[in-house]
C-alpha cells in the first residue's frame, strides 16, 4: 500500500499514458483507500447523482478534515483515493484554497468531471467544500 498524497499519486498517474493505463491505475489506487466502516454504508451517507453508489463520511479533528469514502465501483473508488489524497488531513482554509478540478485536469483526468455526472465526482467535491465552508463560517471551538 502506498501513501495517498498528492505528490505520489501525481507521479504515478503521470508515469502512465493512455486512457486504459490511467483507468488501470485508478483501480490500483482504489486498494490504497482506507477501509470504510461497513456499519456506515447507509443511505444517510450516500452521495446522490452517481451512476455507482458512493458513501462519504466527513469529520473534523483538531481542525483537520477526516475523510472516509467508498464506492461499489472500483474506478470511482480510485477517484475517491484522489479526493482523499487532496483533502484528508487538510484544514478548512486549505480545503477551500485547493483547486481539485485544476489538479485533475493536469493529470489528464478532466473527463471524469464532465457534467454527465457519471462518476459523481463533482457532487463529492462539492460536499467536501460545503463542509469546509460550514466550519469556516462557524469557527471551531
Amino acid at each position: 500500500m502506498t501513501a495517498l498524497n498528492r505528490e505520489t499519486v501525481a507521479n504515478r498517474l503521470n508515469a502512465v499514458v493512455g486512457w486504459e493505463g490511467k483507468s488501470r491505475l485508478l483501480v490500483q489506487l482504489a486498494q490504497d483507500l482506507p477501509a470504510f466502516p461497513d456499519a456506515q454504508r447507509i443511505d444517510a451517507n450516500r452521495v446522490a447523482g452517481c451512476e455507482s453508489r458512493v458513501w462519504l463520511l466527513l469529520d473534523w479533528q483538531d481542525g483537520k478534515l477526516q475523510m472516509a469514502a467508498t464506492s461499489d465501483s472500483r474506478v470511482v473508488q480510485g477517484l475517491l483515493a484522489l479526493v482523499f489524497a487532496c483533502y484528508h488531513g487538510q484544514t478548512a482554509v486549505d480545503v477551500l484554497a485547493l483547486d481539485f478540478e485544476g489538479w485533475l485536469t493536469e493529470l489528464g483526468l478532466s473527463r471524469f468531471l464532465s457534467a454527465s455526472r457519471g462518476s459523481g465526482l463533482r457532487a463529492i467535491v462539492a460536499r467536501i467544500r460545503n463542509a469546509a465552508l460550514a466550519v469556516s463560517i462557524r469557527p471551531l471551538t
Partner: peptide, 21 residues
C-alpha cells in the same frame, strides 16, 4: 466481479460506447 460502470470505463478506453446505470 465488476461494477457495470467500471466495465463501461474500460470499454470506452477501447472506443466502445455503451450505457450504464
Amino acid at each position: 466481479q465488476a461494477h457495470p460502470y467500471d466495465v463501461a470505463q474500460f470499454l470506452d478506453a477501447r472506443d466502445i460506447a455503451v450505457r450504464v446505470g
